[in-house]
């Protein structure tokens, strides 16, 4: 009888502990706040306008530009080769193969970086990989690539080299050879979908 009493007591106390402990949700793919913070601090998620311009000039298939602005804004002006996924439609099933994939680097951009940063955070939390932000957005694109500032001579040789590269890039994006946006986005292929989180089949079925 005594053993039964002790065992009951142990079980009930374990139950009490379980009842008191806060309910937690683990996820094998989602990141917690701390991990996100670390990622942000490392700045590995930023792609500079120079890097992007270079990739576009070299026709680098690794990058996929994603324009998060509205369709009207996109139609007025967009970067070559970009596709338009308006921010509010980011998680529509239609776009899932683009934003949740492993084949290419997605580069989000908007006018500034508000939309792209939010989109990056949301996709990161969901465990999607290969998403990046165009540093400074279209505003920075304009001030660095389209209308690059002439560096003062005190900035040294490196800055002057950059400037020259930017002038070349400007020629590429604004000159006669500028890629037609409308035709560029039609051949943005659907990348390989990332492996989905597996659900376990169970019970007796």
């Amino acid at each position: 009888m005594k053993a039964r009493f002790i065992l009951s007591l142990i079980l009930v106390s374990l139950g009490l502990v379980a009842a008191i402990l806060p309910q937690k949700k683990n996820s094998s793919i989602e990141l917690d706040a701390q991990q996100l913070l670390n990622e942000i601090q490392q700045e590995n998620h930023l792609i500079s306008t120079d890097e992007m311009a270079n990739a576009l000039i070299n026709n680098d298939p690794e990058y996929q530009l994603i324009d998060l602005r509205s369709e009207t804004e996109y139609k007025q002006y967009s970067l070559p080769g970009s596709i338009n996924i308006p921010f509010e439609k980011l998680f529509d099933a239609e776009w899932a193969p683009y934003i949740d994939q492993i084949a290419r680097k997605n580069v989000f951009y908007s006018n500034g970086t508000t939309l792209s940063s939010e989109a990056w955070m949301l996709t990161k939390q969901r465990g999607f990989k290969n998403n990046y932000i165009l540093q400074g957005g279209l505003n920075e694109w304009y001030t660095t690539i389209i209308e690059p500032e002439v560096p003062a001579s005190i900035n040294g040789e490196e800055a002057i080299n950059d400037y020259e590269a930017r002038l070349g890039a400007k020629q590429f994006f604004t000159g006669a050879g500028a890629v037609n946006n409308a035709s560029a986005n039609t051949d943005a292929k659907k990348p390989v979908a990332r492996k989905k989180k597996k659900m376990v089949a169970g019970g007796c079925s």
């Binding site: 937690k24 683990n26 996820s27 376990v200």
Partner: peptide, 26 residues
């Protein structure tokens, strides 16, 4: 049932199992 249930509760609390993958009967 109690042993397995308690085990899952504590494992979940200690971050040892992702309960969203574990099958819950429909």
């Amino acid at each position: 049932a109690i042993v397995a249930m308690l085990g899952l509760l504590f494992m979940n609390y200690m971050g040892m199992i992702d309960m969203s993958i574990v099958y819950v009967n429909e």
